[in-house]
């Protein structure tokens, strides 16, 4: 009898654990080729996590690329059937490393939920993200934001497009005084500057975030956006996973592709996020798909390493 615990590497154990978890929730494995037509990435360059794609010419002259991303390929091959597609994958992607610029093979596992997306579906995906961390490491945190809340709030402050870009940058850096300066530079009031500082500093357990979020309700659009976000938080509380979820608006995705919730997961021992995800209806529209979509990717090597250090 083979003792799989002794035979498998931590990375393999992580992959098998996640595979079991995603199957339990009804996700089907999605296998794909290592190559993709380069054109797909050229059209959606900003969606990629890193610059640079490894390209080569196929025998028929087509320019192909070693996949730097999985989501784009899944969308490209999806069909608007009106139904729901729940898929998971375990693939290697090829990306340029920050700093050195050298290419690296990265093992990624993740899920994509394509179809009608409401609070229960969002809650299911976020719950799976939390359980992906919980199954592999002892201490973990999932940080969650809502891009719709952010966009509605910035829009009602009357910030210019350039100002919004600078504020998004400050949000990513948790630079509260920088964000307040942008509001003041744009002629905003001190009260607005103070409120944007609050948004930048926002880091609050999901279970008690509702009251603090109500600070950002200014008009019908912000009320609707905060209302939708709060209904997701309530679902997470009902699902029993809210204790490890923090609302934090430094989780900012690219607003050209993403909308609604955005999240990332940290495992103690890993110096950066081991899980990244969000809702990407805007990307679906860019790729001429009518369905909504949400998903996440897990960096298997980083998660397995963090799990080892925790042990």
């Amino acid at each position: 009898m083979i003792d799989f615990d002794k035979v498998l590497t931590p990375e393999e154990r992580t992959v098998f654990t996640l595979r079991g978890l995603y199957r339990e929730y009804g996700y089907q494995q999605y296998k794909m080729s290592k190559f993709e037509e380069y054109d797909l990435y050229a059209k959606n360059k900003d969606f990629l996590v890193s610059d640079g794609v490894i390209t080569f010419n196929d025998k028929d002259g087509r320019l192909l690329a070693l996949k730097p991303d999985v989501t784009l390929s899944i969308i490209k091959n999806s069909k608007d059937t009106g139904g729901v597609q729940k898929v998971f994958y375990n693939e290697n992607v090829y990306r340029a490393e920050k700093g050195t610029g050298s290419f690296k093979e990265i093992m990624q596992t993740g899920i994509e939920y394509i179809g009608r997306v409401g609070s229960p579906e969002l809650s299911e995906v976020i719950t799976l993200a939390v359980r992906s961390l919980a199954a592999n490491t002892r201490r973990y945190v999932l940080e969650l934001a809502d891009m719709d809340v952010l966009e509605a709030f910035l829009s009602c402050l009357g910030i210019s497009e350039r100002g919004c870009e600078r504020i998004l940058e400050c949000l990513r850096e948790k630079n509260a005084s920088g964000a307040a300066s942008v509001v003041e530079d744009e002629g905003g009031s001190q009260a607005d500057a103070a409120l944007i500082s609050e948004l930048v500093k926002f880091h609050c357990p999901a279970s008690v975030a509702e009251e603090r979020l109500s600070l950002f309700i200014r008009d019908d659009a912000t009320e609707a956006a905060v209302g939708s976000f709060v209904s997701v938080l309530r679902e997470l509380i009902r699902a029993g996973v809210a204790d490890s979820v923090f609302v934090d608006f430094s989780v900012v995705n690219n607003t050209r592709y993403y909308n609604g919730i955005a999240f990332r997961g940290f495992a103690e021992g890993a110096p950066s996020a081991v899980l990244l995800g969000g809702r990407y209806d805007k990307l679906m529209r860019r790729m001429k798909r009518e369905a909504c979509a949400v998903g996440f990717a897990v960096y298997v090597d980083e998660l397995a390493r963090a799990g080892r250090e925790n042990d």
Binding site: R139, V141, E143, K174, H203, F246, S250, F266, E268, A270, P271, S272, A273
Partner: peptide
Amino acid sequence: IANKASYAFKSDVID
């Protein structure tokens, strides 16, 4: 400055 993962686990003391 703060490491983003450190902040996730030590936000109380860093704040």
